[in-house]
Simulated assay, not measured.
Amino acid sequence: MNFLSKMERKFGRFAISHLTAYIILTYVAGYLLYMIGAANKIDVRDWLALSPSLILQGQVWRLVSWWLIPPTGIDIFTLIMLFVYYQLGTVLERTWGDFLYNVYIFMGLFFTVIGAFVLYFTAGIDVGLMRIFFSTYYVSLSIFLGFAMTFPEQQMLFMFLIPIRIKWFAVLDVFYLLYEVLTYWRYSTTLGICVLTMVVSSLASTILFFFMSKRSFRLSRSQRKVRDNYRRQTGTERGFWKSANPAQAREPKVDRTTFAAGNRGTKIAIHHCAVCGRTELDDPNLEFRFCTKCNGNYEYCQDHLYTHNHVQ
């Protein structure tokens, strides 16, 4: 996370807020263009498609115009899909912050373009000229996978009735992607290679982002400053505990094993979750972090860092 944190400090002010809403708008614009073109017997995808050879000839708008290509026809299932992606993407924006969410999405778009050029230069396959239209379908799917990796125990209703943990939905999606690639491969090797490239390049951001953002749980200088201020304000440096929430204030926990051994010293909890009240004395493996979006110095355990309601 150190690299991403440094980048966020430098360029975080340029992040696009409400990016999920803009993604949904590109879908809407794409469907409108497609319907207008169909009414005039014109396939607008020929003008929007990601085509490396045409880009090299000067049609540079194709580097971004392919974002408007709708992945499927519009029906009730498409509307449900867009609604679900909007909800999940909005949660990720609030959880990760605008900058990290921007990096996640734009990495998927960038690697998709790279994948198309790799196909062109290595296999001589121009997906645009072959009318194999790259779209943002798999990039949008990365929103779902990102949510599943962040909140694996969150439940969703299968068929609107059966609650299933979202991590199992993600596993099913991965297997379905493999099945889809194999199906296209049996039909045509060239088509299978194109679909495999599209899937891998679009979801590369999912792999790289979580590889880069593995939490080392080392506090930065600013985080240590917030922690030290918090300790001074709550009195933990003076040998007793005062909760960040006055309603949850309690006496410090005492390590009973210390007394049983004859040592009269007491251990004072330094970390305290403002939601569940657990400390490092309850479980030495618990990790605690301060939330920078809460007004005040509120500390949370690893189970509630991303799921608590921000104090405003």
Results as ranks from 00 to 15, higher is better:
residue 294 C to H: 01
residue 227 R to V: 12
residue 48 L to H: 01
residue 293 K to M: 07
residue 242 K to R: 14
residue 73 G to R: 09
residue 200 V to H: 02
residue 190 T to M: 08
residue 207 I to Y: 14
residue 201 S to G: 11
residue 22 Y to P: 05
residue 266 T to E: 08
residue 138 Y to L: 14
residue 235 G to L: 03
residue 69 I to P: 02
residue 289 R to K: 05
residue 91 V to E: 15
residue 187 Y to F: 14
residue 92 L to P: 07
residue 190 T to E: 11
residue 43 D to G: 01
residue 109 L to G: 14
residue 251 E to I: 04
residue 221 R to S: 12
residue 74 I to C: 13
residue 105 I to A: 09
residue 247 A to I: 06
residue 130 M to K: 09
residue 299 E to A: 02
residue 305 L to N: 07
residue 7 M to W: 13
residue 87 Q to K: 15
residue 148 A to S: 10
residue 167 K to A: 05
residue 107 M to D: 01
residue 206 T to N: 10
residue 145 L to T: 01
residue 258 T to G: 07
residue 83 F to C: 11
residue 37 G to W: 00
residue 4 L to P: 08
residue 113 V to K: 05
residue 290 F to P: 01
residue 120 Y to E: 06
residue 58 G to H: 00
residue 187 Y to N: 12
residue 59 Q to Y: 11
residue 280 E to H: 08
residue 49 A to C: 15
residue 30 G to P: 02
residue 66 W to H: 11
residue 37 G to M: 01
residue 31 Y to I: 12
residue 36 I to N: 02
residue 273 C to L: 01
residue 284 P to W: 00
residue 17 S to R: 15
residue 223 Q to F: 04
residue 98 D to C: 06
residue 158 F to D: 05
residue 155 Q to F: 02
residue 252 P to V: 04
residue 207 I to N: 07
residue 20 T to L: 07
residue 128 G to S: 07
residue 223 Q to S: 12
residue 264 R to A: 14
residue 57 Q to G: 07
residue 115 G to C: 10
residue 2 N to H: 07
residue 290 F to D: 00
residue 63 L to N: 05
residue 226 V to D: 10
residue 73 G to W: 04
residue 46 D to A: 09
residue 34 Y to E: 11
residue 49 A to Y: 06
residue 63 L to E: 05
residue 177 L to Q: 13
residue 78 T to R: 01
residue 301 C to P: 03
residue 67 W to G: 09
residue 281 L to G: 00
residue 210 F to W: 13
residue 97 G to A: 03
residue 272 H to R: 03
residue 95 T to L: 04
residue 130 M to D: 09
residue 163 P to L: 01
residue 215 R to Q: 13
residue 206 T to M: 00
residue 114 I to V: 15
residue 123 A to H: 08
residue 227 R to T: 11
residue 95 T to F: 01
residue 282 D to I: 02
residue 228 D to S: 10
residue 151 F to I: 02
residue 166 I to G: 00
residue 62 R to C: 04
residue 53 S to V: 12
residue 146 G to W: 05
residue 85 Y to S: 09
residue 124 G to F: 00
residue 77 F to S: 10
residue 121 F to Y: 12
residue 184 Y to Q: 10
residue 97 G to I: 08
residue 166 I to Y: 04
residue 143 I to T: 15
residue 220 S to D: 07
residue 250 R to E: 10
residue 23 I to E: 15
residue 225 K to E: 11
residue 110 F to I: 06
residue 8 E to Y: 03
residue 251 E to V: 05
residue 113 V to C: 12
residue 239 G to P: 01
residue 31 Y to T: 12
residue 270 I to W: 08
residue 216 S to Q: 12
residue 209 F to K: 01
residue 138 Y to M: 12
residue 238 R to N: 11
residue 265 G to W: 00
residue 205 S to Q: 13
residue 130 M to Y: 03
residue 185 W to I: 04
residue 165 R to Y: 00
residue 192 G to H: 07
residue 82 L to A: 06
residue 15 A to K: 08
residue 154 Q to Y: 13
residue 269 A to P: 11
residue 240 F to V: 14
residue 43 D to E: 02
residue 42 I to E: 08
residue 47 W to H: 13
residue 311 V to E: 12
residue 19 L to D: 14
residue 29 A to W: 13
residue 293 K to A: 10
residue 306 Y to H: 15
residue 145 L to P: 08
residue 204 A to L: 15
residue 263 N to F: 05
residue 117 F to L: 00
residue 185 W to E: 09
residue 157 L to I: 08
residue 145 L to R: 04
residue 106 F to T: 14
residue 296 G to L: 06
residue 217 F to Q: 08
residue 110 F to T: 14
residue 251 E to Y: 00
